[in-house]
Design a protein around this nucleic acid. Structure first.
Length: 447
RNA sequence: GGUUCCUUAGCCAAGUGGUAAGGCAAUUGACUGCAACUCAAUCACCAUCGGUUCGAUUCCGAUAGGAACCUCCA
């Protein structure tokens, strides 16, 4: 099955062709660990997790890397404020992030490199760019990339370096040869600093991903590079420019960007306080709910979050939860054995996801399957074998979508209680049957 | 100013050059001891105005409204 992806490099849908047949190399820009992440930070996590699971389901071998930016001005600032070192801050928020990832039921990347681990390689990389004339040192000690040397610059984000509209909003550093030139190395004496042949300082953000890709994949060109839309410029454009300079490659063949999550129809922003931290959402609601919310919209479209929309999604998710629990219960009460079993999701389901990760359509197929299954359950004596088949099919779909939906595994006590319930009802002892019903309802067995 | 993008029923949302998937909510009916669950049925002139076309929600242009990026940002 062909996978079609919207490639931001060419702004069109393209059939995915891996560099090596059957293998996918995928790098997703990870969080800067200076604070707790908000729910928007979790969108790329979900999008690329589904894509990864699709690749795996289709038999690809996936090498997935996602970094932590652990050297950054905001981290340094926070460390100074709290009077601790930068590593303490980074460690704290990496741990917090990982807890969120676990709750979102996302597969961990195969590698999660950090800037501090790859500093030496970054310094070597920057030195090479200077040697080859792609970068220059300014009197103040910064090292800038020379965008004029890259004829493809602007390919990804459609910026025109000759238009020179930059500086309309921000004062341009007079040391820059071109306003679009960006820092590879910042000379500084504040916060954590590192020794380099071109001076004491710390690396700029855009270099880390280029270097980490080379270091982790041992390749200068990978298949997929992903991240949020806002990363397109300047971050990804600048990564690509460095790769063009150092490796003569565009760094990745497919550049994927997810849309934003808005809160009450406004961009999430710390300064305005319009922000929903992931840990708060996950504590108030659940991982599956956030997953469901994100999956119901195409990944390139914005998602708006409001109380109304959350409530709505909760209703929808409840249907799936109820449906799965009912199916699981019925099968077990009728002698079926629900144990782990491999099942293949419907072809239509995979095809939906293979069509530029159309999770919305994939959910439609999930809903259809539930509807058909409910119809089966209403029959007088449905085939357990057929129902089991349905159950595993649904499980396979949920697994790719990453929706961790719980269902009951009946204990002897559950079974006895259920038998009592049926008995009480047939004896028209409704007081007792209602009591038992309440217990079974709590156990996710009766509804 | 430059560059992207969006506008589909009360809500969420997919999609296509030949007259609109799916879900939630709602209404009606069935099932039930009563409920719940579930099932069935009902529920859209695809922002506006032009153009191209035998035919446009789908392509092109304009208008209105909204968003993002151009500065750290998922």
């Amino acid at each position: 099955m062909d996978i079609q992806l919207f490639n931001g490099l060419h702004d069109r849908l393209e059939i995915f062709k891996p560099i090596q047949p059957g293998k996918v190399t995928m790098y997703v820009c990870g969080p800067t660990v200076y604070d707790f992440v908000h729910i928007g930070n979790l969108r790329p996590l979900v999008v690329f997790d589904v894509l990864k699971k699709l690749f795996l389901a289709l038999g690809y071998q996936v090498h997935h890397v996602s970094n932590y930016t652990d050297i950054d001005d905001r981290i340094i600032e926070k460390a100074r404020k709290e009077n601790v070192d930068e590593a303490t801050i980074a460690k704290r928020y990496i741990q917090a992030y990982q807890q969120d990832v676990a709750k979102m039921n996302a597969l961990l990347p195969d590698e999660s490199p950090t800037v501090t681990e790859h500093l030496k390689a970054m310094i070597t990389f920057i030195a090479k760019l200077i040697d080859e004339g792609f970068a220059y040192k300014t009197p103040s000690g910064d090292v800038f990339f020379r965008v004029n040397k890259i004829k493809q610059y602007g390919q990804l984000s459609h910026v025109d370096i000759h238009e020179n509209k930059m500086g309309a909003r921000v004062e341009v550093n007079p040391d820059k040869e071109n306003p679009f030139d960006f820092a590879l190395w910042k000379h500084t004496t504040q916060g954590i600093t590192f020794e380099a042949p071109f001076g004491k300082g710390r690396p700029g953000w855009h270099t880390e991903c280029v270097v980490m890709i080379k270091e982790t994949f041992k390749q200068t060109l990978i298949d997929i590079h992903g991240g949020g839309f806002d990363l397109k410029f300047p971050h990804h454009e600048n990564e690509m420019a460095q790769a063009q300079a150092a490796y003569q490659t565009p760094l990745a063949n497919y550049w994927l960007h997810n849309g934003f999550i808005n809160l009450n129809a406004e961009k999430m922003s710390k300064s305005t306080g319009n922000i929903f931290l992931a840990k708060d959402f996950l504590a108030t609601y659940s991982g599956p709910l956030l997953r469901y919310l994100l999956l119901s919209t195409h990944y390139r479209m914005p998602v708006n979050i409001s109380q109304l929309i959350i409530d709505n999604a909760q209703q929808e998710l409840k249907k799936i939860q109820t449906g799965l629990a009912q199916l699981a219960t019925f099968i077990q009460l009728n002698g079926g054995n629900i144990s782990d079993q491999q099942a293949v999701p419907p072809l239509t389901f995979l095809a939906a996801l293979a069509d530029d990760i159309n999770t919305s359509n994939a959910l439609t197929i999930l809903h259809q399957t539930f509807k058909e299954t409910h119809a089966l359950l209403r029959q007088t004596s449905p085939s357990i074998e057929v129902l089991l088949n349905r159950f595993f099919t649904i499980q396979a779909m949920l697994s790719i979508l990453g929706l961790a939906i719980e269902f009951p595994i009946l204990t002897a006590d559950d079974r006895q209680l259920y038998a009592d319930y049926v008995q009480a009802k047939s004896n028209q002892n409704f007081g007792r049957s209602d009591d038992i019903r309440k217990i079974l309802h709590k156990r996710n067995i009766l509804f």
